[in-house]
């Protein structure tokens, strides 16, 4: 054992190439919106918050669409609207030809075999009183995919090893596991029914840096072997860079820019995206990005500014921005931005 050296796995892991098959549109979202009204007891006169406003986009088979934005921008709400965990106020979601909003509660429940979710909070999203095998096999039971308890345990063992956990843990309880391990369990639960689409709501933001990389890689490996699509909701633009195929940027409930990853990172067109990218502190003391420091804070979502909702903080705002709300318009193929003065601009590195 003395002087035994273990070869670093880094080289092998990093050189593993991701070779994705991206197919046709699997999910089409059209004009999806959600208004939360407060004080429903006294009629609808209370303040209404437009959490999501007119979201339209598609998710293709096998692709990862990342939804980024700051807290309160409505990205998590939008993810839940897609799964009908929150009922939408307007708009339509079409999954594989089925219109979700028209489905009855029972039919919607059956659709959930195709659409699963991974949650942000690795501590809260696993029921503390249920064993790992009970947690993971729950969806399998719902959709009648296991008949006997032996079959159930076999499936759970298989799933646990697929997410990098020992099958011997299946009778343990969540409290014994670390954050990263719990997230692996949550992933095993989501993939147990072979879904075609997974909404991942900030799946790594509660994890430590070294564990974050493990989970991001695991999610990519699983996508590669099983071919499902992700809607990857995140606020960390660096993580998104590694996992996304396309990126949608949200601000105050609206999608302000959407496009292929390379375009969003190398030629962001919306001033908000530009500011967001420039604000990320680079883990390198010698490359300092020219930071665009935005003025002030995000306005109250209950009182969205008229015109372009970003005009109060925008460094290039003109008169027209205060009056007219810009529509999402194509700047280049598949790259859309909602800005009157949209102009692709790489983030300069000082």
């Amino acid at each position: 054992m003395i002087n035994e050296r273990i070869t670093p796995q880094a080289g092998k892991a990093a050189s593993k190439q991701i070779d994705k098959q991206i197919g046709d549109d699997f999910i089409t979202v059209e004009g999806l919106g959600k208004t939360f009204s407060e004080n429903r007891m006294f009629g609808s006169s209370g303040s209404a918050v437009r959490a999501v406003d007119g979201a339209s986009f598609t998710v293709r088979r096998g692709e990862t669409l990342a939804l980024v934005g700051e807290s309160g921008c409505g990205k998590s709400t939008l993810g839940r609207l897609l799964l009908r965990l929150i009922e939408a106020s307007e708009g339509e979601v079409t999954v594989d030809g089925t219109k979700l909003m028209e489905l009855s509660t029972g039919d919607m429940r059956n659709m959930r075999a195709k659409m699963q979710m991974i949650f942000q909070d690795p501590y809260g999203s696993l029921s503390p009183r249920r064993s790992i095998s009970q947690i993971i096999s729950e969806p399998l039971e719902v959709f009648g995919m296991v008949q006997s308890s032996r079959q159930r345990r076999e499936r759970v063992a298989e799933l646990l090893s697929q997410v990098g956990l020992s099958p011997t843990f299946m009778d343990r309880y969540p409290r014994q596991f670390s954050g990263g391990q719990r997230q692996r369990i949550g992933i095993a639960r989501a993939i147990s029914v072979n879904p075609q689409f997974i909404v991942a709501d900030e799946p790594v933001s509660a994890l430590d840096v070294s564990v974050q990389a493990q989970i991001v890689n695991l999610m990519q490996d699983l996508q590669q072997s099983r071919g499902f699509s992700y809607l990857f909701i995140a606020h960390d633009l660096s993580v998104v860079r590694h996992i996304a195929d396309r990126v949608a940027v949200m601000y105050l409930g609206r999608i302000v820019e959407i496009g292929p990853k390379a375009r969003i990172y190398n030629a962001p067109s919306h001033p908000y995206t530009q500011a967001l990218l420039s604000a990320v502190p680079e883990p390198d003391p010698e490359t300092r990005r020219a930071r665009i420091i935005l003025k002030g804070d995000v306005p109250n979502p209950a009182n969205v500014p008229k015109g372009c909702s970003f005009h109060t903080r925008c460094p290039i705002a003109q008169d027209i921005c205060r009056v007219e709300r810009p529509k999402l318009a194509e700047t280049e193929q598949e790259h859309l931005a909602a800005c009157h003065f949209a102009k692709p601009m790489p983030i300069p590195v000082a």
Binding site: A10, Q17, S210, Q212, N217, Q220, S238, R241, I243
Partner: peptide
Amino acid sequence: RGLLQSIPRLNDERTRLYQIPGSV
């Protein structure tokens, strides 16, 4: 070294991140 390699970077094209095995 592992920590620095495992952090995702904005100007990095890699699709797979280096990962430190195990947990703290």
